[in-house]
Design a protein around this nucleic acid. Sequence first.
DNA 1: GCCTTGACGTTAG
DNA 2: ACTAACGCCAAGG
Length: 124
Amino acid sequence: MKMIVAEGCTYNIKRRDDDFYERVYNLVKQIPFGRVSTYGLIAEALGAKSSARMVGWALNAVPLSDRQYEIPCHRVVNRLGELSGKLHFETPTIMREMLEAEDVEFTGDTVNLEKHLWKPAFSE
DNA sequence: GCCTTGACGTTAG
DNA sequence: ACTAACGCCAAGG
């Protein structure tokens, strides 16, 4: 099930047997303490540049228990550094608090990406 | 099946 | 700097 990524043509997630979610999780796990990444970069690293949305969907499917300990979902923000996923935590403030606990710096309600953005290594 | 809804992103105005 | 229109695609009704 290799996808051909010709220029302009991006990987299509459509397959049920795909391990897309797993690959998202593996990548998110690699985000270092005190750093953040974006939905778009993660999607792109997986060869699904146009499917940033599905990255969020995958994270939404992460069990609450894994959310804090196994998979650092709070380190994924949108491309402007906004905490677009905060409503999916136990309380709307948790996400920011977790980031601040890692000394992540904010400007207003957006993360200082200059300082904390982590770019995933391109896989495959 | 059709329609709507999103933890998104780009582009145009 | 802000809004609107798309493109994207899995789920749920």
